[in-house]
Amino acid sequence: MRAEPQSFDRVLSSMCTEPHPAAREAAERFLATNPGDPGTYQTAAALEDRAVAMLGEIVGLEIDTADAIGAADEDGSGGPTGYVTSGGTEANVQAVRIARERAARGTDRPSVVVPESAHFSFRKAADLLQVDLEVVPTASDHRVDLDAVRAAVDEDTAAVVGVAGSTEYGRVDPIPELGEIATSVDALLHVDAAWGGFALPFTDREWHFGHAAVDTMAIDPHKMGQAAVPAGGLLVRSADLLDELAVDTPYLESTSQATLTGTRSGAGVASAVAAMEELWPDGYRDQYVRSQHNAEWLADQLESRGYDVVEPVLPLVAASIPTWLFESLRAEGWRLSRTGDDERVRFVCMPHVTREMLESFLADLDRLESRAARAVPSPGE
């Protein structure tokens, strides 16, 4: 095969990035291992314990590694407090599945309350798991409307979802308040921090297990964590919640499994550990500061050119760029995407996005704008 992967030098819309060199090397070494069979692949299982413990530190969840995946008791008790998933979609589906199983004993049709800013994976989860999805609006700041959440929850609510780093505007919902609402109806609180989880520790926003009554969380090392794809993460506050998912595995050396997939490459696990050991916390702090500065600089540059810009609270900029210019920039090779509601163009300042790259983008934007202006006849011509 002669095909080569796409370069990242014009990618401004993706929430994936170039993996850290240590993460790339670790992924290659553990490519053929299977943490889904921890009794056989013991080194990969031990690395998953390490990944869960490190993710727990990042998100304010104290995790006893004796309870981590691959270290459950022979009778299946204890269970894991998290595992390395294929990404945020799997983690969100599993969180909804936990909530459904827990609620099924008290309702015939459990529901999950999500903001309109929630990732599309929750629609997949609702379809697969046959739960009702109650979508509530966001306020003018693009965060969930708390009054709408309070009006939506009832005795059938299995989970309330908050977003910590939304994919379209980079916003962080008021997680402590959502926890109070979820607790009031005996529902679980799930936080989707798949993208924001590696940036938020260096801000003053309240978003994690240590700030609120969070029960489950998605956080992806293969996004801002600089691990190789696929390497997501699902964390839960207590092992009994993941026990809701456990199934017997009679022909494996381990006796039960709570993951969604069976066979999983150890590449993602090893890559996540390697990246976090290299970068947590100082490397991630430096990365966040650099990415946030780039986002704020880009926002100022676009605003000075007359575009309407949603100010970045995390390293993500949304700006109202006309369709003809959006399409022209894509024709120049820039990988861009739009938000779903008002069709702004979104720019995600991932670690591979440099100031020089943004300057090159703006040069192309200015050139295309200038060419278009010259093509418009003057009045009276």
Rank of each mutant, 00 (worst) to 15 (best):
V114C: 11
S121K: 15
F120T: 12
L146A: 07
A125P: 10
V114D: 04
A125M: 10
R123E: 15
R143M: 07
L128E: 15
A139D: 15
T138F: 01
E134G: 00
E116A: 14
V136S: 14
L129F: 04
H119W: 05
V144W: 03
A118W: 06
R123W: 13
D145T: 09
V112D: 08
L146D: 06
P115E: 10
Q130K: 06
E116C: 10
R143V: 09
L129R: 02
A118D: 07
Q130F: 01
F120V: 13
D147H: 09
L128P: 00
V131S: 00
E134A: 07
H119V: 10
V114S: 04
F122G: 03
D145G: 11
V114N: 04
S121W: 14
H142K: 14
A125L: 11
E116W: 05
P115A: 09
D145H: 11
V112L: 09
K124R: 12
R143E: 06
V112I: 13
V113F: 09
D132K: 07
Q130T: 01
L146I: 14
K124G: 02
F120E: 15
K124M: 12
V135E: 13
V131W: 00
E116Y: 04
F120C: 08
S121F: 14
H142I: 03
R123D: 14
A118E: 06
P137N: 09
S121M: 15
R143F: 00
D147W: 03
F122C: 05
T138N: 14
V144Q: 04
F122I: 05
L128V: 05
D141F: 07
H142E: 15
D127N: 09
P115I: 06
A118P: 08
H119M: 09
P137G: 07
L128N: 03
L128G: 05
A139F: 01
E134S: 05
H142V: 04
D145P: 08
L133A: 02
A139C: 11
A118Y: 02
L129Q: 03
Q130E: 12
L129C: 04
D145L: 10
D132Y: 01
T138D: 07
A125S: 12
V131Q: 01
V114K: 05
D127E: 14
D147V: 02
S117C: 08
K124E: 13
E134V: 12
S140V: 05
H119C: 08
L129D: 04
L128I: 06
K124N: 09
T138R: 10
V135G: 02
F120D: 15
T138A: 03
A139Y: 02
L128W: 08
E116I: 11
A139S: 15
H142W: 14
K124C: 04
V136L: 14
A126I: 04
S140G: 06
S121L: 14
Q130S: 05
P115F: 06
R143L: 02
V131H: 01
V114A: 11
V131E: 00
V112W: 06
D132I: 03
F122Y: 15
V144H: 04
L129K: 03
S140A: 13
L128S: 07
D132P: 00
L128C: 00
H142Q: 13
V131I: 03
D147E: 14
P137L: 08
F120K: 12
V136R: 14
A118T: 09
R143W: 00
R123F: 13
S117F: 04
F122Q: 04
V136Y: 14
A139N: 15
V114R: 05
P115M: 07
